[in-house]
């Protein structure tokens, strides 16, 4: 069953298009990632789905409700965690949680089972004011607040931005266990390495959805073999790679450059012969980021 449906959703701010004719579906109980850089339109899509802004064109449904006409029903059924930390900084952890529970006509006790795994981690600090928590703690509290009314669909807008690596991993673990409870989760992130943690992802760039599929299938659809190369002078190497006719694409990925060749192994041999200095090269499977860059280039 489709839990979230977007049909040709468009939204512009003044003259700039924030999202442009977006289509995709999210199945019930799916952990769905919306992946793209800052300014790609992720927040705009989330705000349209959570009834906070109106689309200029197109239709969207959340749990069968129209996002414009049935906005009141949606507001009862979804959980939303905005990108910015948005809880009351001068209220304590417990006060925040019980406030949001009562706003949704429920109590902490009623749905404690759902948030228990997360809440026990912050419970030692329940009398501390939310403003005094660390970044990771704040995210956990915000997640608890968004979950406390047992939502049918959960929208998490960049929940891991600005959170340390350990907390990020913990956060994704929590999402996986929530999925087991049958909650449909839409999560957006600018970190490509988090894509593999989702069941299905949509890659979004400049308001356009470039592809929607499972991470595995997106990777396997990548047309060329990918190689990681490394040398003593990485920036000179990149210039050289990009200047060569044999190299189809070359992009910097931390310690390595990821490259593809324009004419298969022949091109590779030709390129390696022409090399003036030693270079480490190894065959790798493409990452989501490779796919993203590839799709982005294909889109332009």
């Amino acid at each position: 069953m489709k839990h979230v449906t977007l049909e040709g959703i468009s939204k512009s701010y003044d003259s700039t298009k924030a999202v442009d004719e977006v289509h995709f579906n999210v199945e019930q109980g799916e952990l769905f990632g919306l992946i793209g850089p800052d300014g790609a339109g992720k927040t705009t899509l989330f705000r349209i789905l959570t009834t906070l802004i109106l689309p200029d064109a197109g239709r969207a449904f959340v749990n069968g409700h129209h996002v414009v006409k049935d906005y009141k029903k949606i507001r009862k059924e979804v959980g939303y965690m905005p990108g910015k930390f948005s809880l009351y900084q001068d209220l304590t952890v417990e006060e925040n949680l019980s406030f949001f529970a009562s706003i949704f006509n429920t109590t902490i006790r009623e749905n404690y089972e759902l948030v228990k795994d997360i809440y026990v981690q912050i419970e030692p600090f329940k009398d501390r004011r939310a403003g005094k928590l660390s970044g990771g703690m704040k995210q956990k509290l915000a997640l608890c607040c968004a979950l406390i009314h047992r939502p049918v669909v959960l929208f998490l807008d960049e929940p891991t931005t600005g959170v340390d690596a350990v907390s990020r991993r913990e956060f994704w673990e929590m999402l996986k266990s929530l999925k087991k409870q049958g909650i449909t989760i839409l999560v957006s992130t600018p970190y490509m390495d988090e894509a593999d943690l989702c069941e299905k992802i949509a890659l979004i760039q400049s308001g356009n959805i470039m592809t929607v599929d499972t991470p595995e299938r997106i990777v396997s659809d990548f047309p060329d073999p990918v190689y990681a190369v490394q040398s003593d002078n990485m920036s000179r190497l990149l210039r050289e790679l990009r200047g060569s006719d044999q190299v189809k694409s070359a992009n910097a990925f931390g310690e390595f450059h990821h490259i593809t060749f324009s004419g298969g192994t022949e091109s590779m041999d030709r390129f390696l012969k022409g090399l003036r200095e030693p270079m480490l090269i190894k065959s790798i499977s493409p990452t989501i980021e490779d796919c993203f860059i590839h799709l982005m280039a294909a889109h332009d």
Binding site: T50, T51, L52, K72, R75, K76, V78, Y80, P82, K84, F85, S86, L87, Y88, Q89, F100, I103, F104, N105, C145, A146
Partner: peptide, 13 residues
Amino acid sequence: EMGTMEILLVSPF
């Protein structure tokens, strides 16, 4: 300004 209005709006309140 704090963004809490955003959460309050996405609630039955």
